[in-house]
Design a protein around this nucleic acid. Structure first.
Lengths: 247, 247
DNA sequence: GCGTTCGCTTGATCCACGTCAACCACGGTA
DNA sequence: TACCGTGGTTGACGTGGATCAAGCGAACGC
């Protein structure tokens, strides 16, 4: 809660680690663009940090909503389930991205958020975020941008699901992942997938066998090297070119 | 601009017509939940009202963003275009709904908004909305809810595109339209489609022939009566039942 | 009033992806 | 080291929806 606790080294260290002002994701996350003084106020608000183990839910559809979550480390998927059991993965989220925006509308979460690897999140009580964003214009505006960006991203997914063929979808998916890893300082050409073929398929509106075949095809063409979840991109332009081959 | 102009009957009438406080859509639109006094302040902000003719753009992808738009009357579609010309319709919007939220993220619109019939919109300068929502908590919260609702809606579309078969998609589409017409005081069972089969198809990730065949099928089954764009729903439960028949 | 255009319907055919099934690779456990 | 379970790959085959094509009715311009 308090930002500085000089009388207790133990707590102080923990708090420093939790602070937005000290987080190397602040340029990707909610604190973007805030002054030092404003950052301090945000620190006060982001009180809770939580570990989520691989496979565990951060929240479930139907649960009450009272906070949004910033991913500090790790990897998540969000999905919605139909009554008959069909699953649609609506997104994969990585460090610095926000989870839970869907819950604002009805005060209840409308999707599930599940950790795909051991993760850490910062809980941001939503009512306090609204208070603070009335006072810090930059925060208000940035939050609006983040929500809007989510809407734009969703439009991209609709485009993908509505008009692209299987290989285009997978190429778009890989390029998107690569770009997001790059933004976080990781290699753009080599990474581990945290999700299964089935989860990729659900996200892309394809069956896992189709995803697997597309991976193999890309490998044959020399665009990528696949070994289970380990991906190396060998020819970015090859993948990009795939995406303009309509019909 | 000014809410009351008693010295000029002509202008006064126009202004009264434009005012949110006087708009019968206020329970569906941004003014939801505001007090009389707060409504008056919103009125001051929503200065511009514009007519958009059928077929005309309200805004285009790439254009600078500075306002969001409330639909006062009429009907719109939003779409995104791929370089190679493929179109994805991302939504159909009717009276009381907001357009332009996609533009906040980059300060540029990322999709096109096109009137499907002669329409009227209220322009809401976004920077002024941010100022006002710092002062009126209800407005702030409601705006956040509206953005969040859009995200939830998008998830529903992903579900539809990713996991449903053609007839399920069309059934979901018709039920959604029916429900939204009902909320606006129109018949839930009888309405005119403002969009072509091709636009429906683009939204649903199907070709126009498939949409047409599904309409015919529904008619054969006695679920609906179709005559071009005129739709009568004869058996809502029949349509609903369709949506749980996975595989 | 008449031709033209646009949107819609319907049929025949095709193919991308789904389905079903067998097998394999890896990691964890005994 | 053997065993098992989960996830991934690959092949053979089936099918839902795309494609191609023809015809038709409503709306519009002249």
């Amino acid at each position: 809660m308090a930002r500085i606790q000089p009388l207790n080294q133990e707590i102080s260290l923990t708090v420093i680690k939790t602070a937005c002002s000290n987080c190397n994701l602040r340029e990707l996350c909610l604190p973007f663009g805030l002054s030092t003084e404003e950052l301090a106020r945000l620190d006060d608000m982001v009180s809770t940090r939580r570990r989520i183990k691989r496979g565990d839910h951060l929240y479930r559809a139907g649960e009450g909503f009272d906070a949004i979550y910033a991913i500090r480390s790790g990897f998540f998927k969000t999905d919605v389930l139909l009554e008959d059991g069909r699953e649609q993965v609506t997104g994969f989220q990585m460090a610095g991205e926000l989870l839970g925006l869907d819950g604002i509308s009805t005060e209840h979460h409308t999707c599930n958020a599940i950790a795909l690897e051991d993760s850490e999140i910062c809980a941001i009580p939503f009512s306090r975020l609204e208070v603070l964003s009335r006072e810090i214009h930059t925060l208000q505006h940035h939050f609006h941008k983040v929500m809007s960006r989510e809407i734009v991203r969703d439009h991209g997914v609709m485009m993908l699901l509505g008009t692209m063929r299987a290989e285009e979808r997978l190429a778009a998916f890989l390029l998107n992942l690569s770009q997001r890893f790059t933004a976080r300082g990781f290699s753009h050409a080599e990474f581990y997938l945290r999700m299964t073929r089935e989860e990729i398929g659900s996200y892309l509106g394809l069956k896992l066998e189709t995803v697997s075949r597309a991976f193999s095809k890309f490998q044959e063409e020399g665009y990528i090297a696949v070994q289970q979840k380990h991906i190396r991109i060998l020819n970015v332009n090859g993948l990009k070119a795939l995406m303009n081959h309509q019909r």
